[in-house]
Amino acid sequence: MSTNKQTKLSSNKKAISKTWIVIFKIVLIIAIYVIISSLVRFDILNRQYKALLVPIGVNIILAVSLNVVTGFLGELSLGHAGFMSIGAFTGALFTLNMDMPGTLEFIIAILLGGTIAAIFGFFIGVPALRLRGDYLAIVTLAFGEIIKAIIKFLNLPSGKDAAGNVKMVKGTMGLSGIETYADYTWVYVALVIVIVICANLIKSRHGRIITSIRDNYLAAESIGIHVSRYKILAFVIAAFFAGVAGVISGHNVPIIKPNDYDYNKSIDILVFVVLGGMGSIKGSIIAATVLTVLPEILRPIKDYRMLMYAILLIAMMLFNNSKFRAGLNENKSLAKLTGLLKFGR
């Protein structure tokens, strides 16, 4: 009996501290926004760094959403840029051809881009039921390339010309004249929503199911979980947010091209997730931010910067898996210091 009381007491304490954590998080979210907007308002950031704000936000959304599939469901996906591409082109086609008030148009474009990407996510989730590991990885990569090839092949209606006729553009040329709706406020609101949803998802019934499938799909089936349904669910959710990220990134610059969203982009996103730590939302956020800013920080060394990036990437992976690192892990305070370098669990 007494143990029962104790657990109740401790769970009460837990509930109280949980409320404080929620309040702290809300304050943090607002504080970060205030800091960013004052940095922009008072011209503390130079032009190059200002231009990075939207890409950082987009990359965070991409990394967090890919983490749902790769970190929590445990399936390697190399086609995340494909969903992004679908979002970007759907959104741009919508805003180019519609004549609505800007804000409304952009919100609808975001939801539409996400939805269409989610529908494709459903279709790519189906092979994921039969394939595992490297085989699924190559299928997702193939999917991204198919999307790219099809967009290149299509003729796209790209707004109206002066005479009021619909202009048709070959997909290879990409779309141009897109309204650049996306600014740091838009992307910040979107990324907060995406992060909250993903974090809530993971701590809900559905999130637990998704993680249980990663850990042991057969055991998951044995406790009555319809594994296929939840695998597809994870792909659909991730695709939806990748589509959202696509719409936002597509409205950050006036021109988008199918080649902007090839497998190299998918690989970039995967690198965020892996370096940030599989299954760690916090890690994804930090890694996406740091790795988006890094090339800019390396700008002074000009031509060498991408080379440095490659070397850093290899060095980080080697360091993460070295004996030295394993030694650090035993000392917990040091492990916290190297939080960004956290890999896996």
Binding site: R208, T211, S212, D215, N216, A219, A220, I223, I225, G279
Partner: peptide, 17 residues
């Protein structure tokens, strides 16, 4: 075949799904 990276409580909770 446990869900190794989940807590003991979550292992049972996922079965209550």
């Amino acid at each position: 075949r446990l869900f190794k990276n989940m807590t003991v409580l979550d292992n049972v909770k996922v079965a209550l799904t």
